[in-house]
Design a protein around this nucleic acid. Structure first.
Lengths: 221, 221
DNA sequence: GGCGGGGTCAACCGATCGGATGATGCGGAG
DNA sequence: CTCCGCATCATCCGATCGGTTGACCCCGCC
């Protein structure tokens, strides 16, 4: 509404695996002053290729991307400029737009280099503001996300090691200890040891409970 | 493009718990000829109240609606005209627009009276066509959904009884047999009997496996 | 070099689970 | 009325799991 047309529009790339949602965002953002949607992608791979071509200022990235590369990995490559064409001059800012405000998702996205993290449940105005902030290099977190981050800093969760996550993943497939052992090429005893530590860290005492907590915290791939 | 403006526009009500997605759909559909968005709702309760007021021709309904009433229940009440104001003259057509094409979701939605079922991954043109079909009372299923329906008819899955789903739900919380028994006010022996049948129906032989298959088929609340 | 965290493994034991069998009551379909 | 599916319960037994303890190795850090 105000006279902000002096600056060139923000070049935006959409990445979401749901075509209808993507089309909706396109329609929504195209009619927003100061923003120009320069591309759409339905997968992480597409986003990387498209970004290398159109060089957007900001990538609006969903974390859940169906089959192929997940949003975190796509974010990592985009933000680090490690695209298919190696020397990505100005790495685009990645703004994560997703449905979940889980600790694990937030942490992974930020660690991967996201400039912002906001929720699809947020008001559209927040989205516009976040895009502008991201374009300017400012961090953009929506309120619930910021809350969770602060809470996480105050009471740091015991973090699962990579191996423990491996175990947990097999566990969530419903495998028994012996099968997990075979799947990961370790002994059954080791599996039990890991499971013991996992129980401790997740605050449960049964394997089904571990699966429940893990799915709740979205610790699984 | 063609001269179809002779008929009045289709009055549409959006129901999706994610404000950004809703705004996107609004922007997308508002610019579509023959469709008029007459309301938005962010929850099932809101959708019911809003539908009673604005009397839409079609309700575009997401199945996953956060905390309150779920999309299936909202669909059931809308389609049966069992709103807050009992005698709902012409019950609106409900077109389900969701992310998942799971057998369980499809079956529940159709059973609840949905006129159509399509996926957010579908092309926007499919959405427009489906809305027009729904308004005319024609069933609108997107291709993958129709495929699954046919496959389900050909090889009918053994369906879990309600009680078995109760057991499964407790199981997915990580409870042991004794705890499940207490939670459902039955004996431990009964729990085991149910579990045995559940294993058979799901084709697994461990409790963790049952949880895995159940989550995969989205059999849990 | 010491120290600690992460990963690996073994052996043990009590509790639990899985599976089978048999039985009862109840409701709806034929 | 009879049959059948569903839910309920009991009993038994072998297999498995959970929890613990103790141990070893490797690697990075101080």
């Amino acid at each position: 509404m105000t006279a902000t047309d002096a600056t060139p529009p923000i070049r935006l790339l959409l990445c979401d695996d749901h075509a209808v949602v993507r089309a909706g965002l396109l329609a929504l953002l195209s009619s927003t002053a100061g923003i120009e949607v320069v591309g759409e992608a339905g997968s992480g791979e597409e986003a990387l290729a498209m970004a290398a071509r159109v060089r957007p200022d900001v990538v609006l990235m969903d974390l859940q991307l169906g089959d192929g590369m997940d949003g975190v990995e796509a974010t990592r490559r985009l933000a680090s400029g490690t695209g298919p064409t190696p020397p990505q001059e100005p790495a685009p800012r990645v703004l994560v737009l997703t449905m979940f405000d889980t600790d694990a998702d937030i942490a992974r996205a930020i660690e991967a280099g996201a400039t912002g993290y906001l929720l699809k449940a947020e008001r559209p105005e927040e989205l516009f503001a976040a895009i502008r902030n991201a374009a300017a290099g400012r961090t953009a977190l929506s309120a619930p996300v910021a809350d969770r981050l602060m809470a996480q800093m105050r009471t740091p969760r015991p973090t699962l090691s990579e191996r423990e996550r491996d175990i947990l993943q097999q566990l969530a497939r419903g495998l028994g200890n012996r099968e997990i052992a075979r799947a990961l090429f370790i002994s059954e005893a080791t599996v039990k040891t890991h499971l013991g530590r996992i129980y401790g860290k997740l605050g449960v005492d049964t394997r089904a409970g571990a699966v429940a907590v893990a799915t709740g915290r979205r610790l699984l791939g």
